[in-house]
Amino acid sequence: MLKLTCPYCGVTGEETEFHAGGEAHLKRFGPGSGDEDFTNYLFSRKNPRGVHFERWRHQYGCGKWFHAARDTGTLEVFGTYTAQTGEPPADIVAKIKAKRPEWEGFA
């Protein structure tokens, strides 16, 4: 059971206090988009063993959605940050790079 820290209210809680929301930073494809883009948006998800960006909601706390940068293999949490961004912030990326020099970067 993971421990996560909500970046909004600052509370560190048990995984059961949060709700997992799958891969973060998906780009929405709406009306007018091509079939392939739309299919990938709806159904294709990354499932890496290693660095991963996820959406979480502080379900039984402040109710806010946030993002977590995590290693799915070692369970290391690099950091949590606002959900109101299209990509991970520079300080999180730098922290991951420092710990995982072989990481190919956010794509």
Binding site: G21, R28, R55, R57, G63, K64, W65, A83, Q84
Partner: peptide, 13 residues
Amino acid sequence: HAWMEEWLQTEWW
């Protein structure tokens, strides 16, 4: 309610 919040917070903030 959660659905509305999800879209408000993560897509149309």
